[in-house]
């Protein structure tokens, strides 16, 4: 997966509706359900025993940068636009991009104490523009990253969610580093709110993809 260079203002790069995104090559990434038997609670396993996890089967991914910021655009089919908790039995739709902080972190477990992961997280009920930046060291350990440097913008258009995450290319602290010399590892996840997907109940790309800066 290539991160192509575009001559765009940061604002435009972050705009999921920007026409320039049409020119950026897209990759359709297959997603799969998180395995039920690995959910960390007997109650979650019991409640979900008869239900399907992983409603969203694939996500279209594009990536670009303008020299200052890197942006990753996700697009997936979703008939139900879940902006909030609705009648109390649904969850807002959400999406995430995951990076190992160093080396080969375990993807399915969201890293480990030795090999943490860095997540960019968008949820439909976060204030527009806001993304959460998180660090995880295994299942159930997500914590806010010390410094939030990632933004996200979204729109639901004709049965599809379009979400763009953007972050400065060079940052300090506990955050994934991008370099033209070495491809970064990346993974994707989508939560379908109308199916009550949240937390560990999601669709995710089961292997790390490579992200190379052009």
């Amino acid at each position: 997966m290539k991160v192509v260079k575009l001559r765009l203002a940061n604002r435009t790069l972050l705009d999921p509706a920007a026409a320039q995104w049409k020119k950026v090559a897209a990759e359709q990434v297959v997603l799969g359900a998180t395995p039920l038997h690995k959910q960390p609670s007997g109650h979650v396993r019991a409640a979900w025993a008869g239900k399907a996890i992983g409603s969203v089967r694939s996500v279209k991914v594009q990536a670009a940068h303008n020299g200052d910021n890197i942006a990753i655009r996700l697009e997936w089919l979703d008939d139900s636009k879940d902006l909030d908790h609705g009648d109390g039995t649904v969850f807002p739709d959400a999406a995430g991009v995951l990076f190992p902080l160093k080396g080969e972190a375990e993807l399915e477990s969201m890293g480990s104490p030795e090999a943490p992961v860095n997540a960019w997280f968008w949820r439909a009920n976060l204030p527009e523009g806001e993304a959460q930046e998180l660090i995880a060291k295994g299942v159930g350990t997500l914590e806010p990253a010390p410094k939030r440097q990632t933004e996200a913008r979204s729109r639901w258009y004709r049965g599809r969610w379009q979400v763009v995450f953007s972050r400065p290319l060079s940052v300090r602290g506990d955050a994934v580093r991008f370099s033209a010399r070495k491809a970064a590892k990346v993974a994707f996840a989508v939560w379908e709110g109308s199916s009550q997907e949240r937390g560990g109940l999601k669709s995710f790309s089961k292997v790390w993809q490579e992200l190379s800066i052009q």
Binding site: G42, H43, R45, A46, A47, A49, D87, G88, T89, Q196
Partner: peptide, 14 residues
């Protein structure tokens, strides 16, 4: 001792 499946109440049920 075995966890039983539960469901979320809807807002209108509250």
């Amino acid at each position: 001792g075995v966890p039983q499946p539960g469901r979320l109440p809807a807002r209108r049920e509250w």
